[in-house]
Amino acid sequence: MSARDNILRRLRAAPQGPLPSPPDVRGVQAALAADRPASTRAERIALFCEKMAFWRGEVVRVTSSDWPQKLRELCIAKGVRSLLYGEQGAHAAMLRTAGIVGLKPYRRPVEEWKAELFGDTDAGFTATRGAIAETGTLIVWPDADEPRLLSLVPPIHFALLDAGRIHDTLSQAIDEQDWRSQMPTNALLISGPSKTADIQVTLAYGAHGPKELVILLLVNEEELP
């Protein structure tokens, strides 16, 4: 008998009480939120910004026309010499119009240029699939064009977020975006730069991943500060 068979046989041989009814996650969450009115776009934006600031994420409000220039200014201000991005992405063409110095595409499999990626890349740029207001969290789904390490290895991560895609909670994001039928190889929730409190419960940023997370929040003109 294999280990698999033995383990399953022991589990199936165990006495079973009546099967508990399936958990009603949506029902309980709806009940917990019952005393709150449905959130508005402005409230979701405000809550997201407040929570993201708590995680030390930097939120910069931009519009669909000026974000590449804003990104260029941020890169100059932060001394970024090389900005890694996905060249087939929905925003790539726009990004290239800004004249950012040191723009480089993530073009080859990581094995071919690991040392350069780790040693000589100042910042990475990714799109996002949305965000979660309740916790101040970005939803990032890496793909062939914007690979997993783009948001992890460079010391600064710039993320472009459409303010219209901020959901109240993780559960709502999973439902509304229908995750279960299309899970990618890697899906990520990101709440601030990498951190640790492993030395004497003292918080330090930039443990293994980015030391800075900058969110370019795409808003309408009237929502600019």
Binding site: T135, P147, R148, N186, L188, P193, G209
Partner: peptide, 20 residues
């Protein structure tokens, strides 16, 4: 309220993907 990363992995690198 949440950790910096929540990492959901649903398989190894697919053809065309550049890391993983």
């Amino acid at each position: 309220a949440i950790t910096t990363y929540f990492n959901l992995i649903t398989g190894p690198r697919r053809p065309g993907e550049k890391d993983g």
